[in-house]
Design a binder for these strands. Structure first.
Lengths: 216, 216
DNA sequence: AATATTTTTAATCATTTGATTAAATCTTTT
DNA sequence: AAAAGATTTAATCAAATGATTAAAAATATT
């Protein structure tokens, strides 16, 4: 145990650091390249050489800074998961906002964020599909929703319909257009710019539709 | 030109064929294994050895019957795309059915089919993302929707809102739960069985909600 | 300036992976 | 039954790929 291979040298931090980024630190350049390539192609289709090229660095530097493709991926993935689910988390448990206010906030926040990160949902969802065990969030992220104030409000308004139906409706109507983006473009239904506009329109429309649904 | 390598022997068909399948032909066993593994892991994460193992055959047989991983994939992918988009195609251009009838038919058909093939949308969408050029459907599948009788009906009912909004609503509410399935399971929101029930409930609910939306 | 430390590079390794080959086995035709 | 043709197998290949190494270059410390 404790053979020499366990102690590969890692990048050390200088106490008197140079102005960190004249043009972004190597570490950050690699991370940013990894974000781009992983999100675009997924873990398996991504070659470490793709990331190195995108970052404009020598391949060995990737392993010098991040040890392995998998470690780098986990870093990026954690960020992306946080980004995707971080949108909804702070909204659903606010007991000061009404049901409709919450819906408006969720729709606005998701569409705004996804307009900047259209590939995010398809990336996160397909990677979780590829490796569900690894995201053993069991009973954590789930309960956050299930036991939320939002669910309580939905139950009060519509006791006969499971509250998850309405949550799924709002999320699906907000997120699905971005998931379908590759098809829209490939099939000539919409260009990327048209989707931006389409999504923008939906910010107010989905809130109206939700009201119609919940009052029907 | 025409060197011997161009003429790899391909499986020939006997004129007097043996009762083709005592237990499914080798070709079909491989195709079925490919359906399972490709759909579960995507093209890049799938090893031809995975497919061979799943099919219970020697690896070389895969190339004997299908020439290459890519050829086999294209076969499976074409099937899956046809399955995913074939659901909607025969419904949207029927000028005998009302708007609400069409919606009911689309919702019923999608939820029924996806209950049997829950991994289908995430698979097709992420593979199209990975390789959009290859699905250069430009102006074919797109126009089918854009110029459909369904679009005409939606325009008449709601001239001020782009008809695609309503189509996206119906499709998203029907399909999204299956796309999110890996997350639901991983986060402990729903089991696979609960999702089946949840989706079944939505068959009638989405139609009601659509009515509420279109009349709001 | 001299030394030590960190960062970067080019070359190389070991493994994985899609594919091929040649021989063996099985099936059909004659 | 013999010959011809099709299917299957084990062994192997070549390329791709994640990772490592040793030396060079750059930067910090003394």
């Amino acid at each position: 145990m404790f053979n020499s291979k366990s102690f590969l040298s890692l990048p050390k931090i200088y106490h008197n650091m140079a102005p960190k980024s004249k043009d972004a630190s190597t570490e950050e350049k690699i991370k940013e390249a990894a974000r781009i390539v992983f999100t675009q192609k997924g873990y398996s289709a991504t070659r470490t050489r793709d990331i190195a090229e995108e970052a404009g660095i020598n391949l060995a530097l990737l392993n010098y800074y991040f040890r392995s493709k998998e470690k780098l991926f986990e870093l990026v993935m954690a960020e992306k998961v946080a980004k995707l689910f971080g949108v909804i988390a702070p909204i659903v448990n606010n007991d000061k906002t009404s049901l409709e206010e919450k819906v408006a906030l969720i729709v606005e926040a998701y569409i705004e964020m996804l307009s900047q990160n259209p590939g995010l949902p398809l990336f996160v969802l397909s990677e979780i599909r590829n490796n569900p065990e690894h995201f053993g969030n069991r009973m954590q992220a789930g309960k956050l929703l299930t036991d939320s104030y939002l669910v309580k409000q939905l139950k009060e308004k519509k006791p006969d319909i499971h509250p998850l139906h309405f949550i799924v409706n709002v999320l699906s109507m907000s997120i699905f257009p971005f998931i379908a983006k590759p098809v829209f473009e490939s099939a000539g239904v919409m260009t990327s710019e048209q989707l931006d506009n389409f999504a923008e329109e939906r910010k107010t429309l989905i809130v109206q539709w939700f009201k119609a649904m919940i009052n029907s």
